[in-house]
């Protein structure tokens, strides 16, 4: 019997969550299908003129990604809360923040990453240029982990509350606005031929900031919610 290292713990938590998700694939697919549907509804709502769609595309894809990532937040901790695993996680002799980081990364791989991979296909529906598509992927790659991290705090705070699913969106969406602004800004800049470096580096800065603080804040929120 060996003592588990911090990295070992991180790997254990991520592989556990991925394994659980693979045995319950429907959950992952639901989020992705929701994302595709919301994006596809916009042309039906505003009309099929390509000029307007091209202009709207970054905002539509980003807002849909934001909503889709809200959808899966409720699941981040609730299953573990209900079957008692969360209690055991709080009693883990290693850092709870690292454990939470593992759960956040797994959540992103299951809900954020599929959106990133699907986004270019949806971008084509809106006649986006190849260059814009690349920037869209880059901005989503940097931005969706931040959504998972901020969302984790909301999910931890609303753990076990009635109507938690709606409440978590109410708490988290305003805090996600900067990500939305810089994310869509990058794609719009690319579409109008301007430099995207500043937008992407600001997104990167948000990612680093979130990476440093949110696992710890989420850990505190979990302790509060478990009382």
């Amino acid at each position: 019997m060996n003592k588990l290292s911090l990295f070992g713990l991180l790997r254990l938590v991520i592989s556990r969550d991925l394994m659980l998700a693979m045995r319950r694939r429907a959950d992952v697919l639901t989020t992705l299908i929701f994302f595709v549907m919301v994006v596809s509804l916009f042309p039906l709502g505003v009309g099929p003129e390509l000029g307007m769609l091209r202009k709207m595309a970054p905002g539509v894809v980003w807002v849909a990604a934001l909503l889709a990532s809200m959808l899966s937040l409720g699941r981040m901790f609730s299953a573990d809360y209900l079957d008692g695993t969360l209690e055991q996680m709080l009693l883990a002799p290693q850092s709870l923040s690292v454990l939470v980081l593992g759960k956040i990364l797994a959540h992103w791989m299951l809900s954020g990453l599929p959106l990133v991979l699907m986004a270019p296909v949806l971008g084509l529906q809106f006649d986006m240029s190849v260059q814009s598509l690349w920037v869209l992927i880059a901005s989503l790659l940097l931005g969706t982990p931040v959504l998972s991290m901020i969302g984790a705090v909301g999910a931890a705070l609303t753990l076990g509350l009635r109507g938690g699913g709606v409440l978590v969106s109410l708490l988290v969406l305003p805090l996600c606005i900067p990500v939305l602004i810089f994310g869509t800004g990058a794609v719009e800049a690319a579409a109008s031929g301007m430099s995207v470096a500043s937008h992407l580096s600001l997104l990167g800065a948000l990612l680093v900031l979130a990476l440093v603080f949110t696992p710890w804040v989420t850990a505190q929120a979990l302790r509060i919610s478990m009382e």
Partner: peptide, 27 residues
């Protein structure tokens, strides 16, 4: 629990307010 949970949210919000203000101005 209500006090403590919403306190954490308020702190998170107040850290975020300058970032939000800056990003909205930029936008």
């Amino acid at each position: 629990r209500a006090d403590r949970a919403s306190a954490l949210l308020a702190i998170l919000g107040s850290v975020n307010v300058p970032i939000i203000y800056f990003s909205v101005k930029w936008w």
